[in-house]
Amino acid sequence: MAVRSAAFAALIETDPLRKCALVAALTAGAVDPLPPDCDWHRVPGRPARPPLVRPRDVPRRGLGSAQGRAALVHAVAHIEFNAINLALDAVCRFDGLPDAFYADWISVAQDEARHFCMLRERLLQLGYEYGDLPAHNGLWEAAEKTAGDALVRMALVPRVLEARGLDVTPGIIARLREIGDTPTLARLEVILAEEVRHVAIGTRWFRHLCAERGLEPASTFRALLDAHGVRLHPPLNRAARFEAGFVDAELS
C-alpha cells in the first residue's frame, strides 16, 4: 500500500495496540495522494477509554504513592498516544510537500508508538491499563486548530506543545530518581532524548515552509504565538531547545 494510504489506515485505527502495529509496519514508499473518499470523520482513531475531561478535571496525585506514579505514567502514555495520531495526521493532512516530510513524520509516529508501548508496559507493572484513568484532549484540539496550514501546525504543535516536554521532563526524572522509581525514569530518559529529534523535525519543516513563503522564521514564530494567544512558560530547557533548532530570538 502507498505510504499515505497506509498511514491513514493507522490513523483511523481505534485499538491502541493494533494502531502501534500498523505504524511499526509503515515503510518508505510511493507518496500517494489520498483518495477523495477518505472518511475524515473517523480521525483520530482512538479507543472509547480513557474518558476525556477538561484539563483541570484530570486528578493530580503526588509521586510518593504507587497510584500517583501510575497517574503520571498514564498521563504521559496518553500524550504519546496522541502524538502517534498527530504525526500520522501530518502525513495524511498536508499535500504537496517533499517526500522527506512524509518520511520524517512516519519516523516520528514509529518512535511515539514505541514510547506508548514502553509506558503501557510500565503501567501494567503498576496494576493499571491505558484507559483506566481520565485524560484530556488538549493535544488533539491543537491538531484541529492547525489543520488548515502546515506552517502553523509545525510552529504550534512540535515547537510549542511537544517542546514543552523538553522543559518539564528533566524535573520529573529528577523527582523519580529521588524516590527510586528507576523503571519509570529510564523510560522517560529514552523519551526525552528522542523528543529532541521530533522537535527538530518540526523546526526543519517550519523553516522550509517559511523559506517557501519568503518569511523570516524567528519573527514568524513569535507572530504566530501572539496570534494564537500562546506563550512559552519558563523555565525553558534552553540547551535541548537549541539542539532542536530554536534560536535566541524565538525564546526571548
Rank of each mutant, 00 (worst) to 15 (best):
P47L: 06
R197L: 11
S5Y: 05
A75M: 12
V247Y: 01
V3R: 01
E80D: 11
P183C: 03
G68A: 06
A155Q: 00
D39T: 09
F81Y: 15
L88E: 03
A150E: 01
A163I: 09
V160M: 06
R49H: 15
M1N: 01
Q125N: 04
A135L: 06
R241Y: 04
H78K: 08
R54E: 15
L209R: 03
H228V: 05
R222V: 13
W205H: 08
P16Q: 03
G138L: 15
R61I: 11
P51Y: 06
T220W: 04
V23M: 05
V196M: 07
A143V: 10
A83V: 10
A30W: 12
N237S: 13
L22K: 14
V168F: 15
C92K: 01
A174H: 14
A25I: 11
L124S: 05
P36G: 11
A6T: 02
P36Q: 09
P36D: 15
A48L: 08
R54M: 12
L156P: 00
P235V: 09
A75N: 10
L176K: 00
R69V: 14
A193I: 10
P55W: 11
H233R: 15
A249E: 15
A30D: 13
A103C: 11
R54C: 07
A21Q: 14
I191P: 09
S65E: 04
C117R: 15
D111W: 04
V108M: 11
I179W: 02
R238V: 13
D37L: 06
A218M: 07
A240M: 12
R238G: 02
F242V: 12
R207N: 14
R204H: 08
T220V: 06
C38K: 10
A75Y: 03
L63A: 06
T203C: 09
P44N: 00
R120N: 12
M118F: 15
R213V: 10
A109H: 05
V152I: 09
A7M: 04
G68L: 06
A113N: 15
G68M: 04
R54H: 12
A21S: 14
P51M: 11
L17V: 12
A7D: 04
M118Q: 13
A70K: 00
V160T: 12
A239I: 13
A147M: 08
R153L: 08
R114K: 13
A200I: 05
L63V: 10
R46K: 14
L72Y: 01
D104F: 04
P217Q: 06
L52G: 01
S65P: 08
E129F: 03
S5M: 09
P35R: 06
L123M: 04
A83C: 11
R49E: 15
I179S: 06
C117E: 15
E121H: 10
E178K: 12
L34W: 05
D95L: 03
G245H: 03
A249Q: 14
D104E: 03
M154R: 03
V31C: 09
V108E: 11
L72E: 00
R187I: 13
